[in-house]
């Protein structure tokens, strides 16, 4: 059995999750909700019922993730890739992949980057679609729709010595010392052009995260030794938007209402019909907006502008930190 912590969960897995550091002492799991993860190939292909209560499609309109309530829990179907069953209490996650395309690498990526964030939500944690980096002023998160450049920006920070805290799943929890974020892992997923802009010729050293995408998993960039393995206070969140002009990056204040609305659109939700969860999430977001500054960060599409984006964020964080 392999044991890990990620996103505020204690994971016991029967396969290695290479992105995570294996825990040497089971004591490190104390205080975290335990989740048993079973990933196994299968010769049986599930015949799916059509009662999906939620479905996500790619830009071409093809479903990439469908969710249904089934006896005892939830079914998360990645068409032609894998089925994950999540027990109603969130403590058991089982994946079977009868599809020819599925590789263990792809399945581990889906488990880690897609399914466990939903499990965190099911277990009552606030999980945001956000990437976060550790700076000398503190931890900051980047929220934004797909393609705005959150991961590229994080990779750019990593290359400048500021480690990635998580990529596209930022779990924020209330602790005795205030609001803190639970670590993900020090890696980002980059499209090929982003990987090339950050890594140059070394981009090819990093494999695609799955056969179905050109995105590359890039781990432990730059000074990964500084990756914090413990919950870390979150000092700011930036809503990242793309500016199509070549203008310099800029940061604007957001009203509490706009901050709340932006973050509301950026949460992982396993079951949108679960009113207790929605109510809990609502209160958690209210608490977050009241205690952590939320700003809009406008950045150009141009990779050459990344250093300027880093500088403006660091300058802003230095003011917040003080």
């Amino acid at each position: 059995m392999f044991e890990y912590t990620v996103y505020g969960l204690a994971i016991s897995s029967d396969v290695t999750l290479r992105q995570l550091d294996r825990l040497e002492s089971p004591k490190a799991l104390d205080g975290y909700p335990r989740v048993r993860l079973r990933l196994k190939p299968s010769k049986y292909k599930r015949i799916h019922a059509a009662d999906w209560f939620q479905s996500y499609a790619n830009p071409e309109g093809r479903p990439v993730l469908r969710q249904a309530k089934v006896d005892g829990g939830y079914l998360l179907n990645f068409p032609e890739l894998a089925d994950f069953f999540v027990s109603r209490n969130g403590r058991e996650v089982t994946c079977s992949w009868p599809y020819a395309h599925g590789s263990i690498e792809t399945i581990c990526h889906l488990a880690l980057d897609q399914v466990l964030p939903c499990v965190a939500n099911l277990l009552g944690l606030l999980a945001l679609h956000a990437t976060a980096v550790v700076t000398s002023h503190g931890l900051c998160g980047f929220v934004g729709t797909a393609g705005t450049g959150k991961s590229t920006l994080a990779a750019s920070f990593a290359m400048a010595g500021y480690p990635t805290f998580c990529d596209d799943c930022l779990v924020v929890v209330e602790s005795r010392s205030g609001l803190v974020a639970e670590p993900g892992y020090p890696g980002v997923r980059l499209w090929e052009d982003s990987a090339r802009s950050i890594l140059g010729d070394r981009a090819g050293d990093h494999p695609a995260i799955g056969h179905y995408t050109n995105k590359r998993g890039v781990e432990r960039l730059g000074e990964s030794k500084a990756f914090p393995r413990r919950p870390t206070p979150l000092i700011a969140i930036y809503i990242v938007t793309r500016d199509t002009s070549k203008a310099a990056p800029k940061i604007d204040e957001l009203s509490a209402r706009e901050s709340f609305a932006q973050l509301l659109r950026s949460t992982y939700r396993l079951d949108t019909t679960d009113t207790a969860m929605l109510s809990h999430e609502f209160q958690a977001l209210h608490s977050l907006v009241g205690r952590v500054p939320v700003r809009r960060l406008e950045i150009a599409s141009d990779f050459d502008r990344l250093p300027a984006a880093r500088e403006i964020v660091l300058a802003d964080l230095s003011l917040i930190g003080n």
Binding site: R257, F260, A261, L278, F282, Q283
Partner: peptide, 22 residues
Amino acid sequence: QVSCDLAGEVAILNLKDSVYYG
């Protein structure tokens, strides 16, 4: 419903249909 104050404005979540209002 549940609601919260956001610096003098209000967000509301209707628990019957999971729709949010401001």
